[in-house]
């Protein structure tokens, strides 16, 4: 992981897999970013990510195992039934601690740990969902200098999750679903050129 690598954490619940398909398939190849996704899902679910996201070919799709190293160019998914954490030492952690907001994995848990470890490198994105998980996480990402995005509730299958996030007053950008990937591409490309400029 390079020093200026952005850590993009994405939370989604009801309608999330469909929304994620739109976001992930819009990513250019070779972006200097790490994508970490917390999708609420039934705990015994066993997912085939390649089949769910057939259009995503430039990034490998991985369900996280405990202590797995965090690497650029990979899209990571929280395993069903476990909380997912970003640890300081460049790897992931998991836990079976009690559900947070009736959810495990919980978006708050992922976002807070990413913000604690990576501060202003974090981009927190909340998509569609019928539950308030993630709002506290957005607050923490913002407090520690990261960028926060909520899907425009009007474009969401379930609008509670993005609305709760926007209500915190900590969301920087409210974007239609289709605008999210282009926004990320611009942001990561800009990082890249300003980083080169610095050299």
């Amino acid at each position: 992981m390079r020093k200026n690598t952005r850590i993009i954490v994405i939370g989604a619940s009801t309608g999330g897999l469909e929304a994620l398909r739109t976001v992930l398939s819009g990513l250019d190849r070779d972006l200097n970013g790490i994508f970490i996704i917390c999708q609420h899902i039934e705990r015994s679910a066993r997912l085939n990510y390649k089949m769910i996201f057939p259009d995503v070919q430039d990034y490998s799709l991985t369900e996280v195992e405990d202590k797995q190293p965090i690497e650029s160019g990979v899209v990571y998914f929280a395993p069903p039934g476990y909380h997912l954490y970003v640890e300081r030492l460049g790897y992931f952690g998991l836990s079976l601690d009690a559900p947070v907001n009736w959810s495990r994995p919980s978006i708050d848990v992922l976002f807070e740990s990413a913000a604690h470890v990576h501060g202003c490198q974090v981009v927190g994105i909340l998509l569609t969902g019928a539950n308030g998980d993630g709002a506290q996480g957005i607050r923490e990402v913002k407090r520690l200098g990261g960028i926060t995005i909520a899907q425009n509730p009007e474009s969401a299958v379930a609008d509670i999750m993005p609305r709760r996030a926007i209500e915190t007053g900590c969301v920087d950008h409210v974007l239609d679903l289709k605008e999210i990937a282009p926004f990320l591409v611009r942001l990561l490309r800009k990082d890249h050129s300003s980083h080169k400029g610095a050299l």
């Binding site: 909380h83 954490y85 970003v86 640890e87 300081r88 952690g93 998991l94 836990s95 601690d97 848990v109 807070e112 740990s113 604690h116 470890v117």
Partner: peptide, 9 residues
């Protein structure tokens, strides 16, 4: 212990 989860508890 893994810090992030321990700290949350």
């Amino acid at each position: 212990y893994a810090r992030s989860s321990l700290r949350r508890r």
